[in-house]
Amino acid sequence: MGTEIIRVENISFGYGRVNVLDNVSTSIIDGDFLGIVGPNGSGKSTLLRIFLGLIKPQKGTVRVFDTDIEKFDQWGKIGYIPQKATSFNQGFPATVEEVVSANLYPIVGLAGRIKKAHKEKVDEALRTVGMLEKKKSIIGRLSGGQQQRVFIAKALVSAPRVIFMDEPTVGIDRNSEESFYELMKSLNRERGITLVMVTHDIGAIDKRVNRVLCLSEGKLYEHDCAVSQASDIFKEAYGKRDSWTITHRH
């Protein structure tokens, strides 16, 4: 078993009286390609936001790289790819290069300057996602799939150990989705970057991830299974494949 990147223990979180997460414990292991699934409102995004330190659980502990999340300060190790469609103002006049550079800013430090070495990192990240030639384009004028590649480059530029993704394929076409998963696979296998993906679309990830966390009615169920067996286990647990997201029961 690899090192634990994130460990949550006995966390609970609720909005008002509704308990979204009820005494949940789990961990993200170095090298994982982890899918977090569950029906709408099951707490997937809440769990993701707790992992990222954007919200605090009302009970329980969160440790990131073996450090209490309150004291953790190396956020460059953690990348995040938001849901494309809602993540930014499409009229924002920034170039691809300006957007990707932004994730280096916390590393450069307050009042620090971007130097040549940083610019090379930006080029390298854009080359990895195949968007180097669009470096000077305004981000809002790119297609959905291209914008998503830019956001992957933005996450990659700070050399993260783990990348979190929130419904990353919403609003992009099938071809772009396919190449997105190809890129993710190579980042995971060749660069050893741990990936955590929240999605409602079990069908899209069952062949790709190596572990699945499934949220349902505040509880977390873990399917620690090899890729090839994932679909069989789901078939057994949830019945017909097309209706997984709806008939999801444990």
């Binding site: 995040y80 993540s87 957007v99 994730n103 971007i114």
Partner: peptide, 23 residues
């Protein structure tokens, strides 16, 4: 001049800036 980078990031994506560890 000093905080151009930070103000840019916050204008583009305030949550992203917070996530990246900016104050």
């Amino acid at each position: 001049g000093l905080f151009y980078k930070e103000f840019f990031y916050m204008a583009f994506d305030e949550e992203g800036a917070e996530l990246a560890g900016m104050p």
